[in-house]
Amino acid sequence: MTRNDHIPEPENSQDSFVTTVLEPDQLSEAHKRPVPRRQLRGPLLLVLWLMRIYLLFMIAVVVYQVWSGLH
């Protein structure tokens, strides 16, 4: 079983070579197909907001620490 038994030569037909070797979703054109939006509600939304508040607060702490360190 040689390599050529399995793989088409790219020079023969470039498009068919690409669509044969790559999975459909690997084609750059596939990225134009939208991914459906997920509805966020309840605990998930709460966790996202808590994490956002946590990060904003901690960045304020870091800024304060840098400011106090420089002064």
């Binding site: 070579f17 790559l22 991914v35």
Partner: peptide
């Protein structure tokens, strides 16, 4: 999955696809 669909008819193949396909060809071999 929701993302897995066949290629659209007349799909435009880009330079990026060709390079990636060449890399994948070696993996398949």
């Amino acid at each position: 999955t929701q993302l897995e669909t066949p290629p659209l008819p007349g799909t435009h193949i880009t330079h990026e696809d060709i390079d990636r396909a060449r890399d994948r060809q070696r993996v398949v071999a």
